[in-house]
């Protein structure tokens, strides 16, 4: 625990202006149930963060608070200089800048791949249609499926769908990307194609927060790994230290469980 706070203060001193997400003493309840307890997290521009922890520990809830798919009840969340309150203008502003990729893709089944990608640029950013389509094709090429642009999501494989979902988020040119277990609904052979896209994305300097149990991915791209359990951040560290030298008992147990799998 002491270790983690140290890193936090260190960063705060050096990267004061560079902080894009600041979560400060945040709590959340579902009715009586205290899901998130005193979450403190600062993310600097361009940082890659991997969040892991056992099921039900509140990982999804935490990153969903960042674009206010969930409301927190106590503490502050400031994203890119905008505080998340009930102010709808602020929420819209944050959502424009934050892209999100879901475990179950959540593509729109009644729209083609291309329409999925151009929808938000056209209706939220008010980009002209042709320009939006051009951008969408660029990103579809980046995720290596330009040839599927006119198909419907239901006609693609899981891995392809998830890559479309990534492209769809990127089309809004977000500064921050949130990933909630993007590979855990995929068959093993498709996981790699999605991870490859994410690794490439990571090398381009976008800020990423990623809930995942892919420890290989964490080791290659993460600047910091965060371990959550019971609604708290138990431990955070650089990947090397985190995996080789976990401080906390619960972390050790968790790591032994998933590495033995």
């Amino acid at each position: 625990m002491s270790n983690s706070t140290q890193i936090g203060t260190e960063q705060m001193n050096t990267d004061q202006d560079n902080i894009v997400i600041r979560i400060n003493q945040m709590h959340k309840w579902y009715g009586q149930f205290h899901v998130l307890k005193d979450i403190n997290l600062d993310v600097t521009r361009g940082e890659k963060i991997v969040i892991c922890g056992p099921s039900g520990s509140g990982k999804s809830t935490m990153i969903r608070c960042i674009n206010r798919l969930e409301e927190h009840q106590k503490g502050d969340i400031i994203v890119d200089g905008t505080e998340l309150t009930n102010d709808l203008k602020n929420i819209e502003a944050v959502r424009r800048e934050v892209g999100m990729v879901f475990q179950h893709f959540n593509l729109f089944p009644h729209l083609t791949v291309l329409e999925n990608c151009t929808l938000a640029p056209i209706w939220v950013r008010k980009t002209p249609r042709l320009e939006a389509e051009e951008i969408a094709m660029q990103y579809l090429e980046r995720v290596k499926i330009p040839d599927q642009a006119n198909k419907f999501p239901g006609q693609l494989s899981g891995g392809q769908q998830q890559r479309v979902a990534i492209a769809r988020s990127l089309c809004m040119k977000p500064r921050i990307m949130l990933f909630d277990e993007p590979t855990s609904a995929l068959d093993p052979e498709m996981i790699k194609e999605v991870l490859d896209v994410m690794i490439e994305l990571a090398s381009e300097g976008i800020t990423m927060l990623c809930v995942t149990h892919e420890m290989g991915f964490a080791k290659t791209v993460a600047d910091r790994v965060i371990f959550m359990d019971g609604g708290e951040i138990i431990e955070e560290n650089v990947p090397q230290e985190f995996f080789d030298n976990p401080q906390h008992e619960r972390t050790k147990l968790f790591l032994s469980q998933i590495l033995n799998h």
């Binding site: 309150t85 009930n86 102010d87 203008k89 929420i91």
Partner: peptide, 10 residues
């Protein structure tokens, strides 16, 4: 505008 854009008040 502030009132209108506040979720609760709206």
């Amino acid at each position: 505008s502030r009132l209108w854009n506040d979720k609760e008040t709206r």
